[in-house]
Amino acid sequence: MRLTVNRTPYDVDVEPEMPLLWVLRDELGLTGTKYGCGIAQCGACTVHMDGMAVRSCQIPAEAADGAEIVTIEGLGTPEALHAVQQAWIEHQVAQCGYCQSGQIMQAASLLDMNPDPSDEEIDRVMSGNLCRCGTYPRIRAAVKTAGAKMRGA
């Protein structure tokens, strides 16, 4: 099957049911997307597929055939940070950091669809992303800062 990841096309030959998460991590060597639970309970595996945030542990490879995937590596780099990443660094959000790729991808998707979310909206959208270190208070603040940046405020 063929998928485009961060604008690069790849041909992969794997089982149709191999989760996209493992295609990214093991087949393509893109390890920014993380494995935390495998059952869509933690959100660490969140990527964008055809513009929509999805848990890549739930997407079988065959469903990603022909899709455009963006991972955390494609969202922004240390040299060219996405506004959400800038906000994450400004607020010093991460502790262990393992959940943060997924948090950032979900936050970027949220702000893409809703540039000025309320507290309730942030809580509704982000509560699928688990953080064992408990960085939620700073994530909330960073989402608001990122939204302001993206609105040019």
Partner: peptide, 18 residues
């Protein structure tokens, strides 16, 4: 600003599992 913060915010921090 913690020295590991940029890597952890860009998916470029390599954990053992990576």
């Amino acid at each position: 600003k913690r020295v590991d913060m940029v890597a952890k915010s860009t998916g470029t921090m390599t954990y053992g599992i990576d």
